[in-house]
Computed example of a mutant assay.
Amino acid sequence: MKTKLKAVAIRNLVKADTWIRWLGKTAKHIAVRSSSIETAHGLIPLRVYQPPGEGPFPVLVYYHGGGWVIGDLDVYDPLCRDLCDRSDCIVVAVEYRLAPEYPFPAAPEDCLAALKWTYEHIAQYGGLPNAIAVAGDSAGGNLAAVTTLQARECLPGVVKGQVLIYPVTDHYDPGTLSYIENANGPVLTRKLMMWFWDTYLLNSPQLEPGQTRHPRATPLMRSDLDSLPPTLLITAERDPLRDDGANFAARLSQHDNNVQYSLYAAASHGFVGLQGPNDHHNKAMSEISDWLTALFSA
């Protein structure tokens, strides 16, 4: 009960403090349509962001961050509008189920279902089903990476690329250098990241007591990282998750995958989107849009 109450309190705090900061500055000319996926577990809400013009457009499926515990379509509406506007891609934002109410593996199940829905239905929205990439930040970056791995087996060839923004790739290790250097933040702290992991895995129907790693939770520890689509991986210097991202980029490269890795000096966790427009955010948006343009024009 305490875990659930804390989760609700943090969700309310994020909505009150973070996303309102630049809500009024987002691209109002972007068309936004609501949809949902019917599953055995209930409906998964989606938002489809459409750029102006005739299309058809390439597609970016976006999984929001928030430690698998917080975040929703409203919190990430400004970022998804900005991504759609700058990249000239349709953006499909996914509101997957959150812990502790829905522990692992609810989130990766929902994210894979959203990718499948996108592939089957995006043509109705002016999208190209043969030009789909996935993206996400923080826990959403984890889910994007995990979804790409799942899709390699059950939806081969569908994911053309992945954009991973300071992704979580392994269970926390307090001895990791970036966890030590950035234990007290800014923004994300070591203590909060540890709580996110504990909450996500608590009461999981697929984990044994004390188990902290799983192929659909900790992609860094997988040995089968070959034959994956091109990756853009972005990290922040002042972030406990910096080494998660750097280590995953290195592992992907070791398996002969195409990886573009960028470390943003002096940036902190959340600099893409959640802190509003700033120099680091704008630079990252340009890098992402340029990378997507090159990906889909290849």
Rank of each mutant, 00 (worst) to 15 (best):
E181P: 02
M221V: 02
H280N: 08
T3D: 15
V146T: 13
N282M: 14
A99G: 10
E54K: 11
G136M: 02
M193C: 09
I180D: 10
N142W: 10
V69C: 14
A151F: 00
Q211D: 13
L228R: 03
Y125T: 00
I165H: 03
H269W: 05
T199D: 14
D290E: 15
W195K: 06
P215C: 07
D82F: 08
R11S: 12
V159I: 13
I132A: 02
P129G: 06
A16F: 06
L232Q: 05
N247G: 10
Q260V: 13
E120V: 01
K15H: 13
I10H: 06
P229F: 12
M193Q: 12
E95R: 04
A246F: 14
G175A: 11
E208I: 01
P277M: 03
T235I: 12
K15G: 15
K283R: 14
K15M: 10
E153H: 11
G24R: 02
R213K: 12
T218M: 03
S204H: 04
V75A: 14
M194R: 07
H64L: 02
D279H: 15
H121M: 09
R86G: 10
K4A: 14
F271M: 08
K15C: 12
R213G: 08
L143F: 01
Y261G: 14
T26N: 06
A236P: 11
G55S: 12
S87A: 13
S253K: 14
P174L: 06
L112M: 10
P277S: 10
N247A: 15
A139W: 00
Y119G: 05
T39G: 07
T169E: 09
I44T: 05
E287N: 10
V14T: 07
D74I: 04
D244F: 02
Y166G: 03
Q206M: 14
